[in-house]
Computed example of a mutant assay.
Amino acid sequence: MKIWDISLTISPNLPTWPGDPKAVIERVSAISDGANANVSRMDMGVHTGTHVDAPLHFIDGSSAVEAMNLEVLIGPARVVQVADDVNVIDREVLEKLELPAGTTRVLFKTRNSKYWASQVRDFQTDFVGIDESGSKYLVEKGVRLVGVDYLSVAPYKQSRPTHQVLLGANMVIVEGVDLSAVQPGEYQLICLPLKIEGSDGAPARAVLIQE
């Protein structure tokens, strides 16, 4: 059995969405200073690094992250390679990819993964995302979880239409996965977000497993 950790390492150097708080990790008690144990605190947004979006993120009054269905977050998943010359994943792109019938969890590996491989620290606005037409296509195909290899499932400054379509269909969105070392194919996905009451999202540890 081989395991790929597709989670980003949370640190102050990790890129965050413009306007979101940077991660701050502080050692508040240290053995070296005479404390009984090392103890740290962390301050960051819930959409930092590898994370999930709850419906509440874009649909006011809808369900929060603690109500997410774990059965959707664990199970067979397909990693799909998107060509480097694709700037937006729309319906036409998805039709050409020919997702097999019955695909319920799909992770898109795009040129975004190169940012993680090269440890680019600045936020990139030209990342590849899924537009509204692509989102509607995924809903029509019966996909229940979609993952992308940058910090938003939607193209930059086009967040609302994509999120509202996907979250409105109760689809799980996993953002900020690192697929740079993962080849296209079939895997088992385990993605467990923190259980934060009333939150619109939560950081997650995500792994892919292949027998």
Rank of each mutant, 00 (worst) to 15 (best):
L145C: 07
E98W: 09
S180E: 01
H57A: 15
D178M: 01
T103M: 01
V86E: 04
N13G: 14
S29Y: 11
R160Q: 14
N13H: 09
T9Y: 05
G75E: 12
S159N: 04
G147T: 07
G134Q: 04
V65F: 03
G185H: 07
L99F: 00
Y156N: 14
W17C: 12
S152N: 14
Q81N: 11
A54N: 06
L97A: 12
N170C: 06
W116T: 04
R91I: 06
L208D: 03
V148G: 02
R121D: 15
P161F: 02
P203L: 03
N69D: 15
V28I: 15
R144Q: 15
R121C: 15
A37C: 07
V80C: 02
V93S: 08
G75K: 07
K114H: 10
D5P: 05
D84M: 11
D178E: 01
E66L: 02
K22W: 06
C191K: 00
V82L: 08
V139T: 08
V174W: 05
Q124E: 15
A101T: 08
H57N: 08
K2W: 10
V86Y: 00
P155H: 08
I190F: 10
T162C: 05
V39K: 12
I3N: 04
T9F: 10
K22N: 07
V106Y: 02
S32I: 11
W17M: 14
V28K: 00
T103C: 01
K157D: 15
G168W: 02
G142P: 03
W116H: 05
S11W: 12
I25A: 09
I89T: 05
A117M: 12
R205S: 12
W17A: 13
T125Y: 09
P184Y: 09
G61Q: 09
V28F: 04
P76D: 14
D33W: 05
Q81L: 12
